[in-house]
Amino acid sequence: MTGTVLVTYGSTNGSTAQIAGSIAEVLRKDGLMVEVVPARSVDSVAPYEAVVAGAGLYAGRWQKDARRFLRRHRRALAERPLWLFSSGPLDASASERDIPPVPGVKRAMVALDARDHVTLGGCLEEGAKGWVARMILRNGKGGDFRDFAAIETWAARVADEMRHM
């Protein structure tokens, strides 16, 4: 692969943006040219040879900017290699087992012929935006459950696939 890879994300409180940055860093270390752009800011995927897209999960759905990204660019995404990631469980479950994509993401995977999907642990800490987030935190359910070693391992698999395209 010789073109540029887009790593895009939908993130409300910044946790998924940090995951996207970690994925991009692994791809860069593997020699790939990578741009990291918030989903709401992507005007076109035409300049990119491949796309990695992800979002935080909120009430069993991807963050709205990422859902809109998939809808808006569906034709172009179906024509290039695509990998998806979700960030969400606020417990250790994502580190303990493979969590399948939520129904909307599963439909997108099929429609866009995505190559892979991974569900990663989420992060919700004090100062998070939104009344639901504040309620979750008030009930003691927050914390940082991101496993950066697992994120890097998945990104390395993606980079390996890209290298062999």
Rank of each mutant, 00 (worst) to 15 (best):
Y48I: 03
E125Q: 14
K129Y: 14
V34N: 02
F145R: 00
A114V: 04
E79N: 07
M109S: 01
E49M: 11
G60R: 08
S22C: 13
Y48A: 00
V102L: 11
W154A: 00
F148M: 14
E49Y: 05
C123N: 07
V36F: 09
A17Q: 10
T16P: 06
W154R: 04
V118W: 02
M165W: 13
A20V: 02
I99G: 01
R61Y: 09
V42H: 06
R61I: 05
G3R: 15
V102A: 10
Q63V: 08
F69S: 02
V45P: 00
M109N: 03
V158H: 06
V102R: 06
T12H: 09
D113N: 15
V102S: 03
G60P: 06
L84A: 02
Q18D: 14
L27T: 02
R68F: 10
A46P: 04
R138L: 11
A150D: 07
S95D: 08
A149E: 14
G142H: 04
R134T: 08
Y58P: 04
A76Q: 10
G122N: 02
T12F: 08
L57V: 12
L137C: 08
T8E: 02
L77I: 08
E96D: 12
I136V: 15
I99W: 02
E96L: 13
S87H: 08
A53V: 09
M135R: 14
R72L: 10
G142I: 04
M165F: 11
D30Y: 05
V36C: 03
V105L: 05
E152N: 15
A92Q: 14
R134Y: 12
W83L: 03
A78Q: 07
G142Q: 05
L32T: 00
A39M: 04
